[in-house]
Design a protein around this nucleic acid. Structure first.
Lengths: 354, 354
DNA sequence: GTTTTTGAAGAAATCGGTTTCAAAATGGGG
DNA sequence: CCCCATTTTGAAACCGATTTCTTCAAAAAC
């Protein structure tokens, strides 16, 4: 009769395994890390005991000994935003597949908060920090921020989404120019000429680049820029989209198509348009960016630009691991956007006003 | 002229601080942990040097030494679901305020995956594991799962959302009965008698409880249960909501109000209703659960049951910390729901059929 | 058959903290 | 001013791995 199984409060260690296998702790460690020769029969014996107890080496001790925690810190602006949620899941999946864990935080767009959180991540000895969104994207504080990142980089490698000048940190960036190209080409092919840009803020670098590109494309197509169609002066929320669109329509400005800065604000834009009695896409087309699940919640389903989040996350994690392992990898990698056409965009209506 | 600042590759340690302060490492540690007496003037001197270098103790070493990592593992079903995203952020905030970090994973509803992830968390020596959603809620595998949790509990305390019999693990649970009470009372007060229940799956415990309660309330109000109004046989997605509602309306069943299992599916339900030419709430009221931001994206804005995510997350973290610190705390804590009335619910239309 | 090379495995140092233990310093009372 | 109780403090052990350094044995070379 076996002794009753009792919760031995002490966790099992490499020494216990060693004793039971009749070998030294070093040997057990060698079996564990698998980067030194151990005689096959011994290796097997040790492995059996490891399996028997389902022994898992203490990651803290391991991290302390070899100064690699196998944890990557991930700072996202806010996972409640579907865009970041998608990116976060993609990163986690990629990290897991590479044998890393993720220590993540929501910075909630306070730069002070960010500093605190990064400090926390450093305490935890994460091997690298990925910063997705937040201060990185803010043109107005960019210089100051680069300084800050450089300081962090002295200790921990940092990878950011977006582009950050004046640092040695690696970047994975969506090709914002191409995002705008995709949207504009789609609309121009549908004969739209009065294309509005709604939502976003100019001090955010991605938005800034998109507006630039928007203007370029108009020019190339001999379309005169109507400043009334450019309403990039709010935020990225549903509320903002709703208000900006209301303002435009109430003022009498009538676009044939609207480019929303993201799906989130598109929801507000769509509502405003519908409430003003226009049909989508018959009267006004709406196209959006991010291709989150919101595209399928809003009626009609939104045409939106997708970033292939899995690939995006994978690139971030790959870059982080490459840097950790000291391998060479491009400083700036790009995520290629793709247009997903749904029901919210259609041919421009016959022109009746100017 | 100062020497140029160079990246000293070696991180600064407690010993460096000790040397510069002219004290022993033990003393520095005492200042750091603040749980032993240190002569004030010495304490100040050490603290100054700590501040000077902005020294942060290595969390790995610390965790190894006192077998407390100050990290809590959080397993959520899927942060891309706004409900879990809200809960996740709430937990993170609460954890941070209590001086803990969060190591989180998305279990993505594979029980195998869950086991793997929990194993990972244990390796990382998290002080406790919070499991939010996933297998916990599945009645069909509940027994097997309890066994599994008990095994984990031998090493790491586990806190789950929902109710899990046969384990010693702490639970924080939404009062599902009350959720249904709130929704039904609201609708009954608005004179609704033909109330449909759409979405969800009976093997999920929360849904099961809600259906039970739904029947009880009908009975108490002398309303005969119409099985055609009960469409709890799909999932929790927008797609499911859309399909189930289509099925009901196409079949000719006409409710005066619909209770959606969550906001996510409500979006599909709303779309189906609108596409069938009914107005919300004039013809059919829709009420929902979770009170995520989706309530404000769907038009009309959804009446929904809120859980006060901040309080919810805080209860989870508080419970976890209490367990970690060996303090007594109730095995089952409850989250009280609250109804948020918006535009999707209104008085029942004058009865014309039966 | 002896010497050299290579491979396997243990002892011990190390990572960077916390904590126990014992010694030293301080302080209060007689 | 001395003695005893109480703080303070430092030395050393410890947490649980990895890794370097040795030693020893076996295989290869001569």
């Amino acid at each position: 009769m076996n002794a009753p199984r009792v919760n031995e409060s002490k966790a099992i260690t490499i020494y216990d395994i060693a004793k039971e296998a009749g070998v030294s702790p070093s040997t057990v460690s060698r079996v564990l890390t698998n980067n030194a020769n151990v005689r096959p029969e011994k290796k097997e014996r040790v492995q059996m005991i490891i399996d028997k107890y389902n022994f898992k080496p203490n990651a803290l001790a391991r991290g302390l000994a070899d100064t690699k925690s196998k944890v990557i810190g991930l700072l996202v602006a806010d996972v409640r935003n579907p865009y970041y949620a998608a990116l976060y899941v993609a990163c986690e999946t990629a990290a897991r597949e590479a044998g890393y864990s993720l220590l993540s935080s929501n910075s909630l767009s306070e730069m002070e908060e960010e500093e605190l959180l990064i400090g926390k991540l450093q305490e935890q000895k994460v091997d690298a920090i990925i910063q997705a969104g937040g201060s990185v994207d803010d043109l107005s504080t960019n210089l100051e921020y680069s300084e800050f990142i450089n300081q962090i980089m002295a200790t921990t490698p940092v990878i950011v989404t977006g582009k950050l000048d004046g640092t040695q940190c690696h970047m994975v960036q969506i090709d914002h120019m191409q995002v705008m190209d995709l949207l504009m080409n789609h609309l121009l092919e549908l004969n739209h000429r009065r294309i509005a840009l709604v939502g976003g803020a100019m001090h955010v670098s991605s938005t800034f680049m998109k507006v630039q590109r928007y203007k370029q494309i108009l020019q190339k197509n001999m379309i005169k820029l109507d400043p009334e169609l450019l309403m990039v002066e709010g935020g990225y929320s549903t509320e903002t989209g709703y208000e900006l669109m209301n303002e435009m329509l109430d003022r009498g400005t009538r676009p044939s198509a609207v480019i929303a800065i993201n799906d989130y604000s598109a929801a507000g834009i769509v509502r405003s348009i519908v409430e003003h009695g226009y049909r989508i896409p018959q009267d006004i087309s709406v196209v959006s960016q991010d291709n989150t699940f919101l595209t399928q919640i809003v009626a009609p389903n939104l045409t939106s630009v997708d970033y292939d989040y899995d690939a995006y996350g994978k690139k971030l994690i790959e870059t982080a691991i490459a840097v950790i392992e000291g391998k060479k990898v491009g400083m700036l990698r790009t995520v290629t956007p793709k247009l997903v056409i749904r029901d919210s965009s259609g041919p421009a209506p016959e022109q009746k006003d100017i």
